[in-house]
Every structure is written in C-alpha cells, then in structure tokens.
C-alpha cells in the first residue's frame, strides 16, 4: 500500500490496463477461444458446416440452450444453482397444454397460467432456499424430482398417456404459434423465432448485469452475500428474483416447444439442466458465484449448437456428443483459469 502525498494529479496515477490484458481478463475469453477452435475444426472436417443455409439450424439449436443458459449464468453469478431447469421447461409446456385442453380455455389463458406457475416455481425455489438455508444444489435437486414425477403423473391423469393432447385446433393457437414458434428467412438462412429471443435476452440480461444496480447486487450476492447484506443489498429478494428468472426462461422455452410440436412428451427435460450449466461454465461462470459473463454463456450455448450439428455434419456418430461436451467443459475451464491468471499478473 502507498501513503504517498495526495498532491499529485489523479490522472498520471491511474494506469489503464493494456487492451490485450483487458481482453484476456474477460470472463468469456475461454468460450471465445473454444468457439473459434470449433469453427475452424468443423469447417475443415464437415463440408455441410460450410453451407450458409445451415447457420440458421446451428443458431436454432444454440438458442434452445441459450435462452435458459443466459438466466442460469445470471443465477450462478448470484451464487446459486438450479437443477430443476430442464424439467421446468417441460412442466411449463405441460401446464399450458393441460390447463387449456382440460378446461377448454383459449390457448392464451393456458400460456398465462403457465407463466404464473413457472414464476411461482422459481419464487418457491428461492423462498425454500432462504427458509431452509440449504444449498441450492439440494433444494433444486428436490424440486427437480418433484416436477419430474409430477409431469409424468399429471399427464397420465389428464390424457391417460405420456404426451399432452394436441392443442393445434384450439382457439388462440395460431396467434400463440406466431409468437412462440414462427420462422422467417433471410436469404437462404432460415431464422426461427427463439433465435431472436435468445439474442435479445443476451443483450438485455448482459446490460442488467453490467450496467444496472441490480447487476451490482447480483455480483455482490454471489461474491459475498454477508458483505452484500451488511451494506444494504436486499440479498434474499435478489436471489428469489434470480430463480424467477430461470422460471421465466423455462416458460419461454416450454412455450416454444409446445407450439413447435403441438404436443409435449411428459418424460422430456431431465438432463438438459446440466447442458445449461455447462454452457454457463464454459462461458466463464465460477461455481462459487460472484463472477461470470452472460455473453460467455451464450457463446457456450453456441458451442453446444455447433457441436451437435458439427458432429453429425462431419459424419461422426452423434453418440459422441456428450463425450465431446465433457471435454469442451474441462478444456474451457482450464483455459479460463490459465488466461485469467496471466491477465491479472
């Protein structure tokens, strides 16, 4: 520490970091490098990867992970986990489908009920975490299994089977389909609407994190919740809001899946929660909270999208996808750690 006199002007004391150091100090740098390597690899080995038309397919695959990964990353930066996200997507879709079909309501009413329910699940997760003081890993592992079972059981009760009844002939379906599952083309690139939502959410949530006081609160709640509370940050409310964020993302993805396919399989969802977390971690989120990047999580989702399609375009067996993701996860984390150490030095 320095106790030099304060006479010196401030400007020549504040040394700015070099541009390279700033770049490599970003949480998302490992994901960026990983994405670049992946693009180069698949451009070399997979001819179909080079076709412009496939950009839309890759982005679509990335967006179905990215919409959730953005909120999962925000939650992880806030210091918590949510394992119930994969199942919650299905729960949100089934809630809309069953409530609309069973009570013969306008589809939009089902969509609204689903939104309220998804937000309530998030709030419940956050509240339970606060009341029990248990780790969020445990609390959401519990709700994960609760909703996994409920998805199967409720669907059996309502439809007698394992998939929701088709709602495509119901009132309001067409407009809801237009909102959640429409598509359009730019040249030869087919753009499905979730891609737009994904990009908008990435920008909005990234702004929230880095440029608003709520972002400051999230960083502090994850970095040191006791310190945050001591200086007046409403930590409990912040964390409940973060869980409601993942609830919202589950609803949006659930609505897309429902209106894309008209029905939903009640057993789908489990397994995806880890892919969202992998995307967030590849994007630079620390498991311990307080550090990470929303753009990084979206790049992580893009890596997933490229891997899914790149592997099949290259003619490899798609069974290797998960192996590939595991390797990517560890490699990206190692790159993140290495680069951050070098940038800090």
């Amino acid at each position: 520490m320095s106790t030099a006199s304060t006479a010196t002007a401030s400007d020549d004391r504040v040394r700015t970091r070099s541009a390279a150091s700033t770049f490599f100090g970003m949480p998302a740098v490992g994901a960026l490098i990983g994405a670049a390597v992946l693009v180069a690899l698949f451009l070399a080995v997979a001819p179909a990867f080079r076709s412009v038309g496939n950009i839309g397919t890759i982005l679509y695959s990335a967006s179905t992970i990215g919409i959730m990964a953005v909120f999962v990353a925000l939650l992880m930066i806030g210091g918590e986990f949510d394992l119930s996200t994969g199942v919650a997507v299905t729960t949100a879709g089934l809630t809309a489908a069953h409530s609309a079909w069973y009570f013969n309501l306008n589809v939009w009413v089902g969509v609204l009920i689903s939104l309220l329910f998804a937000l309530a699940i998030g709030a419940f997760n956050g509240w339970l975490l606060h009341v029990t003081k248990l780790p969020s890993f445990l609390v959401t592992l519990g709700t994960y299994f609760v909703f996994w079972g409920a998805n199967l059981a409720m669907t059996r009760i309502v439809t007698g089977g394992v998939s929701s009844n088709s709602i495509s002939d119901m009132e309001g379906f067409n407009s809801a389909h237009a909102v959640f599952a429409s598509e359009f083309s730019i040249g030869s690139v087919n753009i499905k609407i979730p891609i737009i939502y994904w990009i908008l959410l990435t920008v909005a949530v990234s702004y929230l994190l880095l440029r608003t006081k709520y972002g400051n609160w999230i960083l502090a709640a994850g970095g040191d919740s006791a310190a945050a509370r001591a200086v007046g940050v409403p930590v409990v409310a912040t964390k409940i809001a973060l869980f409601m964020g993942t609830g919202f993302a589950a609803w949006l993805l659930g609505m897309h899946t429902l209106f894309e396919y008209n029905t939903l399989q009640s057993g789908t969802g489990p397994g995806y929660e880890f892919i969202y977390i992998i995307a967030a971690v590849i994007g630079g989120c620390l498991l311990t909270g307080g550090y990470g990047s929303i753009v990084g999580a979206s790049i992580g989702a893009l890596i997933y999208g490229m891997a899914v399609l790149g592997i099949s375009y290259a003619g490899w067996d798609v069974d290797w996808l998960r192996t590939f993701l595991g390797v990517m996860l560890i490699a990206a984390v190692l790159i993140n750690n290495y680069v951050r150490k070098r940038a800090d030095a």
Binding site: L219, G223, D224, A226, A227, A230, V231, G290, Y291
Partner: peptide, 12 residues
C-alpha cells in the same frame, strides 16, 4: 459500519 471483515466482495 466498517466491519472487521470489511463487507467487500472480493471478486468485484
């Protein structure tokens, strides 16, 4: 209040 643990978030 200036706490003993200073109430600063180390990564921020």
């Amino acid at each position: 209040t200036v706490y003993q643990d200073l109430a600063l978030a180390p990564l921020m």
